[in-house]
Amino acid sequence: MTEATTVCALADLIPDRGAAALLPSGEQVAVFRTGSGELFALSNIDPFSRAAVLSRGIVGDLRGVPVVASPMHKQHFALRTGECVEDPAVSVPVYPVRVESGRVVVEAR
């Protein structure tokens, strides 16, 4: 059974903006709530710069696919798969995320 962490209230997330959360394992997760109401969670570490910044990127879509742009050098990562749009060989880990009674819950991978 995987460990689940309640990170915040759904209302704490600004639509189309991310927030960083710290898991008990020490991993950092970027949690996103899109304007259409979907929730996503990716590793917060930008694989290009190694800085923990993906939660601070701009959320949007490219050809209909929801993405976050790294605030460091603007590579895009698909929110569903973690895959880098500019370089499919690169991806960031994704985490299962759900809402329970108005709280956002992230599962460890």
């Binding site: 962490t5 990170v7 915040c8 704490d12 960083a20 959360a21 710290l22 950092q28 949690v31 800085a51």
Partner: peptide, 17 residues
Amino acid sequence: ARFTSFVNAPGTPDPTV
């Protein structure tokens, strides 16, 4: 309120820095 390191641990600084 947006100026926090972690939404679930607002006072904890980013451990990677």
